[in-house]
Amino acid sequence: MQFSHDRSGDTLVVNASGRVDGSNASDFLDTLQGLFEPGDQKIILDLSGLEYISSAGLRVLLMAAQNLDKQGKSFSICSLTESVGDVFRISGFDQIINVFPSVEAAK
């Protein structure tokens, strides 16, 4: 997995690409949460470069979303590829986590 991020004001945009499955899901969560700073109010995860996500990957996204929600922060994901979008749609996660078509729309 590769990560890059961009912070402007209280908004953090994280770009994650590659594959998330059972073998790296907990590393994915650690890396993601390691990027958060106390001042971040809005966290947007840009998944345009994500090729594959397994159910273990969905689970860590849910954990991240719930943690941020508890702190009163907003979390959304955006720019899903077609196959990753299918995973979100079929599992119903698009009803649990905010999904936007682009980073701009998520802001």
Partner: peptide, 14 residues
């Protein structure tokens, strides 16, 4: 045909 619903265990009152 697909039915409405979400993976089980993650959200209440689905």
């Amino acid at each position: 045909p697909m039915t409405k619903g979400v993976a089980l265990g993650i959200a209440p009152d689905v």
